[in-house]
């Protein structure tokens, strides 16, 4: 579905990705892990077009989308949850969902909202509340709901559990799984630091260190007993 080939990317003069290649195929749940500064978020930004790579290609469903602007990539079926604040706190929950679905209007917009609220049913009672007043878990749910409003084929999630309690994080993951079932999302790629929470969910794990893929495995469950070892790799990656 999504393939990135030989991606080299910079922030200013600092190179973050060094010929990184990754593939997320249909039906996969890819967990992208690595130390801080490994280039995980940068990689997602390159895939979504928020950062133009210096070198390399991004393919989506076999089509080269490297030069497409972000909005066209999003409208073509790539859903992206950023690591930072993803909601507009000054407007209501309902307006945030409308914003997520933009430019959808009328019946289609209502249907999409209904679908999203079936997944995040606890938001139903808070539609007219200001999004800024929601709890951390509710905010993240709303942020994911906004991404789902466009019915993405592929979901790219950058640390969906960031700042959440273990219980709230686990709830978010369950909601993501439900969304995948209900909306027919074909593949998910998630960046996550919380390995205990994410490893059981993943079907593939990709370890990124220093802007390079150091390990790809189709059996992420075997790492559950090796979380400390992984953290060691991450530590060395920081050095």
């Amino acid at each position: 579905m999504i393939e990135a080939k030989d991606i080299a990317a910079f922030y200013g003069k600092k190179q973050i990705l060094f010929g990184t290649s990754l593939r997320v195929s249909e039906g996969e749940r890819v967990l992208l892990v690595g130390p801080n500064g490994a280039g995980k978020s940068t990689f997602l930004k390159v895939v979504t077009g928020l950062l133009q790579p210096y070198n390399g290609q991004v393919l989506f469903n076999g089509q080269n989308i490297t030069s497409l602007p972000t909005e066209k990539r999003i409208h073509s079926g790539i859903g992206y949850l950023l690591q930072s604040e993803n909601i507009v706190p000054g407007i209501t929950v309902d307006e945030n969902l409308t914003l997520g679905g933009y430019p959808l209007t009328g019946k289609i917009l209502s249907e999409r909202k209904h679908e999203v609220l079936e997944i995040f049913d606890f938001l139903k009672d808070k539609l007219s509340a200001r999004a800024g007043y929601l709890s951390g878990g509710e905010r993240q749910a709303l942020a994911i709901g906004m991404v789902l409003m466009k019915h993405p084929q592929v979901l790219l999630l950058d640390e969906p559990s960031a700042g959440l309690s273990p219980k709230a994080a686990s709830q978010i993951l369950k909601h993501i799984e439900r969304a995948q079932e209900l909306m027919g999302i074909k593949a998910i790629c998630m960046v996550e630091h919380n390995l205990k929470f994410a490893l059981p969910w993943a079907s593939q794990i990709i370890i990124l260190v220093g802007g390079r893929v150091v390990k790809t495995s189709d059996t992420p469950n075997m790492y559950i007993t090796k979380i400390e070892e992984l953290e060691k790799i991450f530590f060395h990656g920081n050095e």
């Binding site: 928020l50 972000t70 604040e85 000054g90 409308t98 430019p103 991404v147």
Partner: peptide, 26 residues
């Protein structure tokens, strides 16, 4: 309208709004 909401989203966090498919330039 969603247009006004999208502008607010771009104002508050341009990259996040762009990530939702809003084109800042347009």
């Amino acid at each position: 309208a969603p247009f006004g909401l999208a502008l607010k989203a771009l104002r508050d966090d341009e990259m996040a709004a762009e990530g939702l498919g809003k084109s800042p330039v347009h």
